[in-house]
Nucleic acid binder design. Structure first.
Ligand SMILES: [Mn+2]
Ligand SMILES: [Mn+2]
Ligand SMILES: [Mn+2]
Ligand SMILES: [Mn+2]
Lengths: 156, 156
DNA sequence: CTCCCATTGTAGCCATAGCTACAATTTGTC
DNA sequence: GACAAATTGTAGCTATGGCTACAATGGGAG
């Protein structure tokens, strides 16, 4: 009986990603990173202070208000948030959903790092970068490790 | 007895990173990401084929040879590798050291993901992005989880 | 020795994320 | 209400990592 390809043909093994596909996914992850961090920050600041201004974001990320302004223009065009000239920043429904997902994933990554014994300050730093590269499949393993139930979320 | 600041003053708690410091570190991590992936790829291709050409890198990352060419120019200027015009790419001593460290960290991250139950193809993808945000402290926890001894490495 | 093809280089473009300098607007305080 | 401070916008710059198009180089096959 020889069904699969080589040794122990137990589970169906997917067709082995090429390096091209791997780096393409990393590039896609990076392309979403700023959007995720910004909607997350807006949600957090709104929750804390009622409203979020561009200046709040500039302080939060420690970048110039010009950098914030340009990024907000892009995220507005992408339908994640809205803001009248000189007005405060608000999340759209799409932006709110992205913020919720990002927040949850961020928290899970942070708690996971703490659970494996990483000190709190290191965990906060590393989680901020790692989060954007954690797929749904890996997130489920993190949650399983934390002894919780994986919630019925979406794709990659 | 009231020594620390608040509840259970056991370990010395570091002064709590601000969001500004956290995002600064993530930006530093991103600034090193391309260099790390490139020296790692050069080392791998040299190990496999004896020499590494720009075209090999273009195939590896699935980008144009122009993108490779510009990045190689920068990494040459940074002293990580060297190459005569129309010649193959070679790592400098500095580049070789960076490649070794990156390879080890990459492998550790990959094996860690596999160890917590992430499927192999997902692990390969996620590790490629996560690796650049894993500090020495977190890497030690990964190694500890894998039941190995943390090697005497350097800083962050 | 040619000629072809793979490889590399160059010119010039785009998008993103940074910045400084300066202008305009809003807001808050007398 | 006027004025100062904070905030936002705009102009114009850099660096990085993408791209297409086209030119130059170099190694083999004949
Ligand atoms: Mn986040
Ligand atoms: Mn983040
Ligand atoms: Mn790598
Ligand atoms: Mn990588």
């Amino acid at each position: 009986m020889q069904s699969g390809s080589q040794k122990t043909p137990r589970k169906k093994s997917p067709p082995a990603r090429t390096s091209q596909e791997i780096f393409a996914q990393v590039r896609r992850d990076h392309a979403m990173e700023t959007a995720e961090d910004y909607v997350e920050a807006v949600a957090k600041i709104v929750a804390q202070q009622g409203t979020c201004r561009g200046a709040d974001l500039a302080r939060h990320f420690d970048v110039s208000h010009v950098t914030v302004s340009k990024i907000l223009t892009r995220l507005k065009a992408e339908g994640l948030l809205r803001a009248r000239p000189y007005g405060p920043v608000e999340l759209t429904d799409t932006g709110t959903r992205l913020a919720s997902m990002s927040q949850q994933r961020h928290e899970t990554v942070l708690h996971f790092l703490l659970a494996i014994g990483v000190d709190k300050e290191t965990a906060r730093i590393d989680a901020e970068g790692i989060e954007h590269h954690v797929s749904q499949a890996t997130l489920k393993r993190f949650l399983a490790f934390l002894g919780q139930q994986p919630p019925p979320t979406s794709s990659r």
